[in-house]
Amino acid sequence: MQTSRTVEILVGIFIALGMAAFFMLAMKVSNITAFAETDTYRLQARFDNIGGLKERSPVRIGGVRIGRVESINYDDEQLEAIVNLRINSQHKRIPDDSAASIYTAGLLGEQYISLEPGGSEEFYADGDTIDETQSAFVLERMVGKFLIQEAENSERR
């Protein structure tokens, strides 16, 4: 058995390595912004069709992630999907005529909400609803439209 000093040094190294591994998992593997995201405000958007949008999907402006989808509900009076967004407070200056659309990252990638800034001088505040929305792009619907168009074209010929 080693002397007690060597043992203690080795245990110290062991614990330091373990802490370093935790640190790496926190900083490099996950996004440390999870802490910063406690400082957020809410927006709401209504869509006819949200496609494959999920809770915690990203919200982006110009491709930069500024928040996440907090929850998704269905309003059976107006027959629309209600999407609650949590936007980081450092992005306070979103014009209140901005439009929200649901896009897909890549052909088969995850879906996200993209906000296109408008030209208004006023900004969205906590709890506001985004009026101008564009539904998700559903691949099957586009393929269906395309097929019908093709059929019509060939009939005409």
Partner: peptide
């Protein structure tokens, strides 16, 4: 970093 959440996964 985009997918792995500190508070949930780690």
């Amino acid at each position: 970093q985009d997918k792995v959440m500190l508070d949930e996964d780690v």
